Computed example of a mutant assay.
Amino acid sequence: MTEEIYLPQAHLIYNANFLDTLFSEKLFQQLYTETNWIQEPIKIFGKEMMQPRLTHLFGERSYSYSTIIMNPEPFPEMLQQLKNNLENFTKSTFNVCLANLYRDGQDSMGWHSDDEKELGENPTIASISLGGERMFHLQHKTKKELKQKFVLAPGSLLIMAGETQHFWKHQLPKTKKQVAPRINLTFRQILD
């Protein structure tokens, strides 16, 4: 079931069962075992540290964020199939997929917005969750009291579109709970 999440200055759509269970589990296993996952250093507040997650880029264009430049590998068949389905569903075009592997509850991603110049003014980010469930947080950039938290289920789709990246930041926080490995696939359109 697809639901709109109504927040000021944001356009969010969540579908908890976008992928059927069999496809979701098969894609997770394929990506988990066959992807050349890497862990790169990132600068946070002027201090260099290793990213608390593993990453890989699939697609047609290089992508850079923070101080990292990633070069893509072509979409494997199952990921290409998923990309085609997402493009039909969202009526958007995607040319890269940033894959993130969160190995356990200590892997995380801090507060940020996907607002790099090469994504354009109002990017559509289509985020697919595979594997373990994790909590996801949103917070308005200037009205700190505006917050949203929800669990991203395996096989779910979260779309962040419109002005969301201008006015909101998001994170996947650490947790002390025992959680299964999770892969997050974020489909984006890199512009010229």
Rank of each mutant, 00 (worst) to 15 (best):
D107F: 08
S127D: 02
E118Q: 15
P74W: 03
R103L: 14
G120D: 05
N71I: 02
F75Q: 06
M160R: 05
N85L: 08
A153F: 06
A161N: 10
S108E: 10
L130M: 10
L158E: 02
T124H: 01
M70K: 14
D115A: 15
Y102E: 08
N100V: 02
S113K: 05
P74L: 10
D114H: 08
G59R: 03
C97N: 02
F150V: 04
E77Q: 13
E87H: 05
T142H: 13
I159R: 02
L79I: 06
L119A: 12
G59C: 06
L98D: 04
L157A: 03
E133N: 12
E73G: 00
L82P: 11
Q80H: 07
E116F: 13
M109E: 07
S129C: 10
T55A: 13
L54Y: 11
V96D: 01
T67Y: 00
E121T: 11
P72D: 12
F58P: 05
Q148A: 13
E77G: 04
P72F: 12
N71F: 14
F75K: 07
Q106F: 07
Q106D: 09
L79G: 10
I68P: 05
Q139V: 10
A161R: 05
I159G: 04
K117I: 14
R103C: 14
Y65W: 09
R103F: 04
L146T: 00
S92K: 12
S129T: 10
F136C: 10
G59A: 07
E73R: 11
H140W: 08
G155Q: 05
P154H: 05
E121S: 15
K91G: 05
S62C: 10
L54P: 00
V96Y: 00
I69F: 00
L130I: 07
P154M: 09
L98V: 03
S156F: 00
C97Q: 02
M135G: 06
S127H: 02
P72S: 13
K117T: 09
L86C: 09
M78W: 01
T67A: 12
L79V: 08
R134V: 06
M135V: 08
E118D: 15
L54F: 13
K83F: 04
N95Y: 06
R103V: 07
M78L: 14
I69W: 00
K117G: 01
P52L: 07
T55H: 12
I128F: 02
E60L: 14
T67E: 15
E116S: 12
N71E: 12
H137D: 15
L146Q: 15
P72H: 11
K91M: 10
E118L: 09
N122E: 13
H56D: 02
R134F: 08
E116W: 13
Q106I: 03
Y102F: 13
W111V: 06
L119D: 04
Q139A: 09
G59E: 03
E73A: 14
Y65T: 04
A99V: 04
A126C: 06
R53K: 12
I125R: 01
D104H: 13
L54R: 15
P123M: 11
H137K: 13
H140R: 08
A161F: 01
S156K: 00
L152Y: 03
M160I: 02
E133V: 11
Q148H: 15
T124Y: 01
G131C: 07
T90N: 04
M135T: 11
D114Y: 01
L86T: 02
C97Y: 01
T67F: 00
L82F: 06
L138S: 08
G59P: 05
R103A: 14
S92V: 00
L98Y: 05
K144V: 01
S129R: 03
